[in-house]
Amino acid sequence: MIDVHEKLSMAQALNRALRDAMADDPSVVLFGEDVGALGGVFRITDGLTAEFGEARCFDTPLAESGIVGMAVGMAMNGMRPIVEMQFDAFAYPAFEQIVSHVAKMRNRTRGRVSLPMVIRVPYAGGIGGVEHHCDSSEAYYAHTPGLHVVAPATPADAYALLREAIAAPDPVVFLEPKKLYWSKEEIEFPVRAPGIGTAVVRRAGTDATLIAYGPSVPVALEAAEVAASEGRSLQVVDLRSIVPFDDETVCAAVRSTGRAVVVAESAGFAGVAAEIAARVTERCFTSLAAPIRRVAGFDIPYPPPKLEHFQLPGVDRVLDAVDDLQWEQ
């Protein structure tokens, strides 16, 4: 295959991943609300019904539990369904299906029934969405054994991780950071990227490690850029997948700097950032020069658009946390 370079937005990269997966495997079907003629409210499924027909990409009634439940049945019966939840906070009617069936079917049946399916969720804030459109719901899914939970931060990763999620033998909750849908990147096809469960170091640094995923990765990178101009070298780790969690890469990174800040948009209490801080502390305590800090969302319902900038971890808040990492010792 000849390498092809194309500049794509994350939305276009996701669309390309869906198209390529559907072309490669006739058992891949895609359905949800407005994914057909409209191409999805974010246009991620644009053109797929036209290209693959109604049987492969279709609109459903407005009922998320029914959508996920039907995907369970189709996955039981030889298909690889991909479903779209229109927005993070609209996925909750499907919660029982996800927790009681999607996550547990392999376990209940001693591995006899697997559910190769992907639940795509446009996710998190930063787009000025009105209420019920900007939840960071990753902790609910990450807390449920049996699910893989993935959150890309770049267009190339969006393509690679979605292709891998579709091909995976286990169900994947695929969190698409809405505010990054329009971010662009030159992508080299075929995309060569590490698999689900592998974190990557996005920026080398020696003084402290910023750990981020999904929408927080660009914030961490920007903070590192600013810090560099102020003479501090920050390393940035992009988790890529929350479950499975790449302890090895994350811990090696933190040990190399001795200091760490976890950056995440979701409410901090009992969130993914808390888990990361705890597990890295357990594993790297003797390498740490300071307690791991979290910069997370406040423990409040997601605010209205005109107040959301207070909620989202920004560069300044990240740098303030870095400043607190006991440098004076």
Binding site: V29, A55, S65, G66, V68, G69, M70, A71, V72, G73, M74, A75, M76, N77, G78, M79, P81, E96, Q97, S100, H101, M105, R108, T109, V113
Partner: peptide, 22 residues
């Protein structure tokens, strides 16, 4: 598998049937 959470198996039945029909 026997379904214990009430009615949750019914959408699965629809999915199995729809896949077969496709």
């Amino acid at each position: 598998p026997h379904a214990t959470p009430l009615a949750t198996q019914l959408p699965h039945a629809v999915g199995v049937a729809h896949a077969a029909r496709l």
